[in-house]
């Protein structure tokens, strides 16, 4: 038992040390994705199933390339923070840390791969 008052316990940035940063990020990225996703879905839906030439032509367009890169980045960071919340609910200790590191690594690998492909196509 630590002799802390409720006030003292809630002061500053709380137990996480980062305050509401995580939640605020999820709200900001959710609003961003609400705008990005419908357009992204339309672009991918139209390009999927076409020949390579048509796909390359689609993603070589600057608007499409920028929108795709932006959607990938925002959605993958939104994903890794969301997956972190799930992992924190169901696992603990070192396994929790390992799983969180894995999803962060996975999300940035996907971002890097996607941006590389886009650069190769669009530039």
């Amino acid at each position: 038992m630590r002799y802390l008052t409720d006030r003292k316990r809630a002061e500053g940035k709380g137990a996480s040390g980062t305050g509401t940063e995580h939640h605020w990020f999820m709200q900001v990225s959710a609003v961003g994705l609400a705008f990005l996703i419908p357009t992204f879905l339309f672009i991918v839906g139209s390009a999927l199933g076409q020949g390579r030439e048509a796909v390359l032509e689609t993603f070589a367009n600057p608007f499409v390339a920028i929108l795709t890169g932006l959607t990938l980045y925002v959605s993958m960071v939104h994903f890794n923070k969301g997956a972190q919340m799930m992992i924190e609910d169901y696992w603990s200790g070192s396994l929790r840390k390992g799983l969180i590191m894995f999803v962060i690594g996975l999300s940035y690998t996907i971002i890097a791969t996607g941006l590389f492909a886009l650069a190769k196509i669009a530039l």
């Binding site: 993603f59 996907i110 791969t113 492909a117």
Partner: peptide, 11 residues
């Protein structure tokens, strides 16, 4: 993952 793989393959 599938979409990014498809994009990488196209590139």
């Amino acid at each position: 993952i599938l979409i990014v793989w498809w994009l990488l393959a196209a590139a």
